[in-house]
Design a protein around this nucleic acid. Structure first.
Lengths: 218, 218
DNA sequence: ACCAAGTGTTACTTGCGGTAACCACAGTCT
DNA sequence: AGACTGTGGTTACCGCAAGTAACACTTGGT
């Protein structure tokens, strides 16, 4: 019996099927936003709901798989910017710009990635319901953790360096995200200007700037 | 005829009823999280769904009303920290600490406020579905706008000061939010330490810090 | 006494996540 | 050949939550 070969063949077939489904889901999410229904996704893929559930378990599973694809892609781009041969300021600006360009190019995808929606905690935990934290989108967490690691590796922050680097990683990512989200809505200025303003902020201009006329400044 | 008086009386009665409903909704959201059902909220208030809908239109309306209460409360606390008579660094730290203390004290509320969930856009806009931005929780936007205004009022940033202040406002709020969210989950350090690390970040320590051994640093 | 308006209810519709049961066809074993 | 098994597919259903329609009860003004 050729069970091993045929099993292998079937497995790769299933994987490519999975890719097709993800691409269909991608199209629908891009069109309908993050609240796209499973029915719509199934229809786009030319099949029906139960197949989706066979492949991804539940909606959270599909969304997690989808998010992972995009998050990975974005992370690769960001790492490239972070690793460029240039001085620190230039690299910070280039990283900010890479992120902002990405969300500018595909706002729907970005919007989907940031949507906490169904956190899909496997723990129903009927005790005291207080599961507290874990609200943020996984993308933010991943980016923050990643950046924290990069900072810890490369910047010397004295004692407790590693912890501070993590804090900064999450903080900087949050800054980038919130500013980008706001900018994407109102478009109050060019991308370059936003990038340089944020870099200025990180470069301590808030501390250096003088007070305005009257009263002690912020 | 006493129509004017009675109308007035009824109106205030309706308002106090509304407050009661909001308090009940508050309890339920605190207990069940942001996905609390309208049925549950109605039950907690001792009434049934249609009344809720009469008062708030739809779920988004109720949630918006609820969010406004908490956002206002938090904003008042933050403004107090922002207006304290102290130097800039102290005030920044105190503002960060106020925010973090608030989310630490009532994580469920905080979680609810940050949940975009149903953005409740009144515009179905079937044309080109691309409504783009507007993903973030209203709380973040409001805080960012507010802080930007405060910065613009009090700090002298040279030409284009106002625009940069807005950018910084949203950026700083995002930093605070993301770092706080992460910290709330993992609790890797004390609140004081988080506050001072974030303030250090804003004070330009990233620019000043030296590279680690080998290679150009981040 | 009667009308109007506001407060409340039950019972329904619609739509979505998720699942059970069933169908059809490949290849395999005897 | 013919029964056996597993895999990709479907229809039809359940449960549940948002939102609504239509109907009842009080209450104050005329």
């Amino acid at each position: 019996m050729e069970t091993a070969r045929s099993a292998e063949r079937q497995r790769t077939a299933a994987e490519s099927r999975r890719r097709e489904l993800l691409e269909a889901a991608d199209r629908v999410v891009l069109r309908d936003g993050p609240q796209a229904s499973m029915n719509a996704i199934a229809a786009e893929a030319g099949i029906t709901k139960p197949i989706l559930y066979r492949h991804f378990g539940d909606k959270g599973g599909l969304y997690r798989a989808l998010a992972k694809r995009h998050t990975d892609a974005l992370l690769i781009a960001l790492r490239a910017a972070l690793d460029a041969p240039a001085d620190r300021r230039e690299r910070v600006e280039s990283t900010l710009d890479t992120y902002l360009a990405a969300i500018e190019a595909r706002p729907q995808v970005y919007r989907f990635l940031m949507h906490p929606s169904d956190n899909a905690d496997a723990a129903p935990s009927p005790e005291q319901g207080f599961d507290v934290g874990r609200h943020s989108a996984p993308l933010l967490r991943r980016l923050g953790e990643e950046l924290g690691q990069v900072i810890a590796e490369r910047v010397d922050l004295g004692p407790d360096s590693e912890q501070m680097a993590r804090i900064w990683g999450h903080g900087i990512v949050g800054m980038m995200h919130a500013a980008g989200d706001w900018w994407l809505g109102d478009r109050p200025c060019s991308r370059e200007r936003l990038v340089s303003s944020l870099a200025d902020l990180l470069w301590g201009r808030l501390a250096e700037a003088g007070d305005r006329q009257g009263g002690p400044g912020f």
